[in-house]
Design a protein around this nucleic acid. Sequence first.
DNA 1: TAGATTGTTAATCGATTAACAATC
DNA 2: TAGATTGTTAATCGATTAACAATC
Lengths: 213, 213
Amino acid sequence: MGKSRRVSMAVIRRLPKYYRYLEELLEKDITRISSKELSRLTGFTASQIRQDLNNFGGFGQQGYGYNVEELRNALGKILGLDRKYYTIIVGAGNIGQAIANYKGFQDEGFEVLALFDKNPKLIGLKIRDIEIKDVDSLEEFIAENEVDIGVICTPKEYSQDTADRLVKAGVKAIWNFAPNDIKVPEDVVVENVHLSESLFTLSYLLKCYSEQE
Amino acid sequence: MGKSRRVSMAVIRRLPKYYRYLEELLEKDITRISSKELSRLTGFTASQIRQDLNNFGGFGQQGYGYNVEELRNALGKILGLDRKYYTIIVGAGNIGQAIANYKGFQDEGFEVLALFDKNPKLIGLKIRDIEIKDVDSLEEFIAENEVDIGVICTPKEYSQDTADRLVKAGVKAIWNFAPNDIKVPEDVVVENVHLSESLFTLSYLLKCYSEQE
DNA sequence: TAGATTGTTAATCGATTAACAATC
DNA sequence: TAGATTGTTAATCGATTAACAATC
C-alpha cells in the first residue's frame, strides 16, 4: 500500500519532536491542539506542521484542530512505536553502559537484551539485570534471539567490524555511537549519533556569537 | 571583520564531518586531497564540498586540490577548535558520567572542570579525577571559574531550571542531553542531543524498509 | 605544455511559506 | 450562523547540482 511519494528526511526528523510535544500535552490532559499552538511549542511554522502531517494523512478537522491523543497515536504508528524492539549493545564502555542504564527507551518499547564486550573484566557483569557477554558469542546470540537493532558503542577502530558482523548475522538497523561512519548494505538502516560533531557545532556557534559583539 | 553573509546551518553541520575525515587522512600521512576524493569519503558531492569550503575562503589550488593539513587547520579554526573550552556537567547520572569519562573531548580541547548533582550519594565522588559537587554550589563555582560550556544531563524536569541557572551565571553555550527543549536568551547558543528522537528516526526508517519487501 | 581541479556563476531542484477555499 | 482552522495549491525562498573559465 505504498501509495505516497517518499517522505523527505527533513520531515521525518521533525516527527519525533511532534510526538514528544503531543505526549507532553497528553500528560497535561490537553485534548485538542491547533497547528498554530503546536507551532508556538515546537518553533516550526503552522503551515509546515500541516504540510508535514498531511504527508501521512488528514488527522485534523477544520475549525477544530487536532485531537491530541489521536494524533499522538497516529504519529506513534508512523514512527513504528506501536511495537516492541529488541536491541543489543556492542561495547560496554561508558556510553554503552549509559544507554543500557537509561530507562526511557524501555518505556518506549526498546528492550536491551544484552551487552557485548571483549574486555574480560567486564564480561559477566550486569548493568541493571542485563548481562555483559563475550563479544565472541555475538553471532550465536543473534541466531538464537530476535534482535531488531544493534547499538554500536565501540571505539572507532572496531565500529566497522562490528557493523559487518551485525549485518552478516541479519540485523537490519544500527544505532551508531562510534565517532566514525560505517558502511552497510542498502537494506540496512543506520542512524548515527556523532557526539563530537554535535560538540564542534556548538563550539562553532559559540565562536560566531562571541565574535559578533 | 564579519564580511560574509551568514553561513547556513546545513553547511555548518557538514564542517565537523570534513574535519573528521581530514584528521583521518592526516593520520594516514596523506598530504593532498581533491574535492572528488573527499566526495567519495564523505558522501557529499564534490560540487557541494567546494561550495561549502568557499563560504570561508579559497583553501584549494587549481589542478592540485587541497593540502590536507592546511585545510584541517583552517577548518579547526573555523570551528573554534584552536582554543581550550572549560565545561561543567550538570547531572551526574548515566549520561553525565559517560561524558565525563570520555577522553575524546579532552583531546580536542574540551576540559570538564566539575560535575554537579543533587544526590548526596554522588556528591564527593570522583569520575576520573573530576569531582561531583553539590548542585547548590553551581553559581559559586561559575563565578570563581571560567566556564565556557554547560552540559545539561539532568532529567527533563530539571533541564529548564538548570539552563536558567547556567544562563544567569553567565554561561553562553549549552550542550543539552535532557530529552526536552530549553528556552534561553538570544545570545546563548544551545546544541541539543535528543537521543530518543534519534532512536525514533531509526525505528521509522526500519519500518519503512521492512514494509517495502 | 596538457591534465587536473579549483572557485564561481547559472540552472535546477526541493523545501518552506503564504494564501485561501472547504468545512467543521 | 459566524469563527476557526484545516488541507492543499501556488509562490517564494534557499540549497544543491551542473557547468566552465581560470589557473596551477
